[in-house]
């Protein structure tokens, strides 16, 4: 029963996607072409995010910790 509910919801989402992008009125071959393009672009965006976002986050973290976190370190070392 729950599976059916989820399936219905996914189908509804797909229908909304069809309507909003106007692929609802495209002919089948145009539709498959449009879906291919959308899926490719979306996959590439996700993959790019997956590859590059962690690196950038780490670099940013290091950069900011150098600016803000670096000073107390050195103060401590001088006191010692």
């Amino acid at each position: 029963m729950d599976i059916k509910h989820v399936k219905d919801y996914i189908y509804w989402l797909y229908y909304q996607y069809l309507l909003i992008t106007c692929s609802y009125v495209l002919e089948p071959w145009e539709q498959s072409m449009f879906h291919t393009i959308t899926v490719t672009v979306f996959a590439m965006v996700v993959y790019t995010a997956y590859v590059f976002v962690p690196i950038h986050v780490r670099l940013a973290f290091e950069f900011f910790s150098q600016i803000f976190g670096g000073q107390p370190d050195s103060t401590v070392s001088i006191v010692n």
Partner: peptide, 16 residues
């Protein structure tokens, strides 16, 4: 905005 996106898609396919 979404309406314009829709017209954008249709226009592109129209040109094709």
């Amino acid at each position: 905005v979404l309406t314009y996106v829709g017209y954008g898609v249709l226009t592109l396919f129209g040109y094709l």
